[in-house]
Amino acid sequence: SEEEEEEWRRAKERGEEIIILGILWKPNDEEAERRIKEALRRV
């Protein structure tokens, strides 16, 4: 969703871990980033 995407962007800017759509994303975690982008597209 729009607000999840916004939340994720803010976490990326701050360089902090975030759990979004049930996926743990850490800074520079390209695999998780790809999965999150896929999940955001499906929503």
Rank of each mutant, 00 (worst) to 15 (best):
E30G: 10
E6W: 08
E30K: 09
I23H: 04
W25N: 01
E13N: 06
V43A: 14
I36T: 02
A11W: 07
E31W: 03
R14Q: 10
R41Q: 12
W8N: 03
E3V: 14
W8R: 07
E16F: 10
L24V: 07
I18K: 07
D29E: 02
D29W: 05
G15W: 08
R34C: 14
R9P: 07
E6V: 02
E17R: 06
E13Y: 03
E13L: 11
R34G: 10
A39Q: 08
N28F: 13
K26G: 07
A39M: 09
G15T: 02
W8Q: 06
E4S: 13
L21C: 14
E5N: 07
R34F: 07
W25C: 06
R41E: 12
E13S: 10
R41D: 11
V43P: 08
R42C: 11
E3Y: 15
R9I: 13
R41N: 11
E17S: 12
R42G: 12
I23V: 05
R41H: 12
R34P: 01
E16T: 11
G22V: 09
R10D: 09
E7I: 10
L24K: 13
A32G: 03
E2S: 15
R9M: 13
W8E: 05
R42F: 07
R9Y: 13
A32H: 02
E13K: 06
W8Y: 10
R41P: 04
W8S: 06
K26W: 06
E17H: 08
E4W: 15
E33S: 08
L40N: 02
S1V: 15
L21S: 04
R10Y: 06
E33P: 00
D29H: 01
R35K: 14
S1P: 13
G22H: 00
R42W: 04
P27C: 07
R14Y: 08
E7W: 15
R41L: 12
E38A: 06
E5F: 08
E16K: 09
E30S: 09
G22D: 06
E31D: 11
W8C: 13
E31H: 07
E4T: 13
K37H: 09
E5K: 02
K26D: 06
L21A: 09
A32L: 05
I20Y: 04
I19E: 12
I23M: 01
R10I: 09
E16L: 14
E38F: 00
E2Q: 14
G15H: 05
L24Q: 08
L21R: 10
R34N: 11
L40F: 04
I18S: 04
E33H: 03
I20P: 00
I19Q: 07
E13V: 09
E6H: 05
G15Q: 08
I19A: 02
E3H: 14
R34S: 11
L24G: 05
R34Y: 04
S1D: 11
K12G: 05
R34H: 08
E31Q: 08
A11S: 06
E7A: 15
E33G: 06
E33L: 05
E38Q: 06
G15Y: 05
E4N: 09
E30H: 10
G22M: 11
G22Q: 02
R34W: 05
W8I: 13
R42V: 13
K26F: 08
R9K: 12
E3Q: 14
E6F: 07
A32I: 04
E6S: 02
R10F: 04
E16P: 02
E17D: 10
E17Q: 10
R10H: 09
R14D: 08
E17V: 11
R35P: 00
K37A: 07
R10P: 05
E13M: 09
D29S: 03
K37P: 00
L40C: 05
E33K: 02
L21Q: 10
E5P: 04
I20V: 09
R42N: 12
R34K: 12
E30R: 08
A32S: 12
K26S: 11
K12P: 01
A39W: 03
E16A: 08
R35S: 10
R34T: 09
R41I: 11
A32W: 01
K12Q: 11
W8P: 08
E16I: 13
E7S: 11
R10T: 10
K37S: 08
R34L: 11
W8F: 15
I20M: 04
E38P: 02
L21E: 06
I36P: 00
D29A: 04
P27N: 00
R42L: 13
E33D: 11
E4P: 14
R10V: 10
E5H: 04
A11E: 03
E17P: 14
W8V: 09
W25A: 03
N28L: 06
E2P: 13
L21M: 13
E3S: 15
E6G: 01
R42A: 14
A32E: 04
E13H: 06
E5Y: 09
I23Y: 00
R14G: 06
L21K: 08
R34M: 14
N28T: 04
E31Y: 05
R9D: 11
A39F: 03
R14K: 13
S1M: 15
P27S: 00
E33Y: 03
G22T: 03
P27W: 01
N28Q: 08
R34A: 13
A32V: 05
E6P: 10
R35M: 13
E31V: 10
K12A: 08
E5I: 06
W8M: 10
E38V: 02
R41Y: 05
R9V: 12
E33I: 05
K37F: 06
I18V: 13
W8T: 05
E30Q: 10
R35V: 07
E38K: 01
S1E: 12
L24A: 06
I20H: 02
I18G: 00
D29V: 02
I20S: 01
E38W: 00
E5S: 03
I19Y: 13
R10M: 08
E17C: 12
I20R: 01
L40R: 03
L21W: 00
E3M: 14
V43I: 15
K26H: 08
S1Q: 12
L24W: 02
K12I: 13
L21G: 07
G15V: 05
W25G: 04
